[in-house]
């Protein structure tokens, strides 16, 4: 457990915060493997992983409820303040993002199942490559996020947030996908499915960034969410 969560005179409070942290890590690991499996499901030989993803989705949902209940219990019992309060608040926000990550994995899987159904006689490897490119980016982001979450390292979280976003790659993919439609309008439905998957992957990147922001909030108390909006608001008030 990171030292900033321990050291209470009431040692059971240490244990309760540690337990929350461990449950969050467990949920993160589950969601990460769900997303990995979802991306892999576009390889024909890995289609069977679809059942794993659905089974994990159930576990993620149950974990969400369990962690929420643990958070309520700690809040009711401990009257947490300062970094303890921030940790509990941060964990609570993380649970929501993690659950949504799980939903995105499920969404990708649904589309993957559709793509491999009888509806489409053959797969377009060129288009599937777009998923691979963005998927790798999203997975790398999540993998780094697991390390950040484990150590609650705010410096590493800030570094992660400085990484280039997925937007550029997403837009490049959209351009390439447009050319497929221009060549053959019958591919429209297939392309839309691919775009929906890319959008889900883009959301996964955004959720991973949210998680990094919560780590920074827990450790330093800095609420860096919507920084651009805050600047805009300050500018408007200054005028």
């Amino acid at each position: 457990m990171p030292d900033r969560l321990e050291g209470h005179t009431f040692r059971r409070f240490d244990g309760e915060l540690d337990h929350l942290h461990t449950e969050i890590l467990e949920m993160m690991a589950l969601v990460f493997s769900q997303i990995q499996n979802a991306i892999e499901s576009f390889q024909p030989q890995k289609q069977k992983t679809v059942y794993d993803i659905i089974e994990k989705e159930v576990r993620v949902n149950l974990l969400e409820k369990k962690i929420d209940s643990s958070i309520m219990e700690v809040l009711a019992k401990r009257g947490a303040v300062a970094r303890d309060l921030r940790a509990i608040m941060g964990f609570s926000k993380m649970v929501t993002d993690l659950e949504r990550l799980g939903d995105e994995a499920a969404r990708i899987t649904q589309i993957s199942t559709k793509i491999y159904s009888k509806e489409y006689s053959s797969q377009d490897t060129g288009m599937l490559r777009e998923i691979d490119i963005i998927g790798k980016h999203a997975c790398a982001m999540l993998q780094e996020m697991i390390a950040v979450l484990k150590t609650l390292d705010s410096k590493r979280a800030r570094k992660l947030l400085r990484r280039a976003g997925i937007n550029e790659a997403f837009n490049a993919s959209l351009r390439r996908l447009t050319t497929y439609v221009l060549e053959d309008t019958l591919k429209m439905k297939y392309v839309i499915n691919i775009i929906l998957i890319l959008k889900s992957l883009e959301r996964i990147d955004a959720h991973a960034r949210n998680l990094a922001e919560y780590v920074i909030y827990i450790v330093s108390g800095d609420d860096i969410r919507h920084a651009e909006d805050n600047r805009q608001d300050a500018d408007n008030k200054a005028r």
Partner: peptide
């Protein structure tokens, strides 16, 4: 003070780590 204290001693006291 109760959400983001500046001093380590304040933080330790209000979170029940010393005192």
């Amino acid at each position: 003070m109760f959400t983001n204290p500046i001093h380590q001693l304040t933080s330790d006291y209000i979170t029940g780590r010393i005192g």
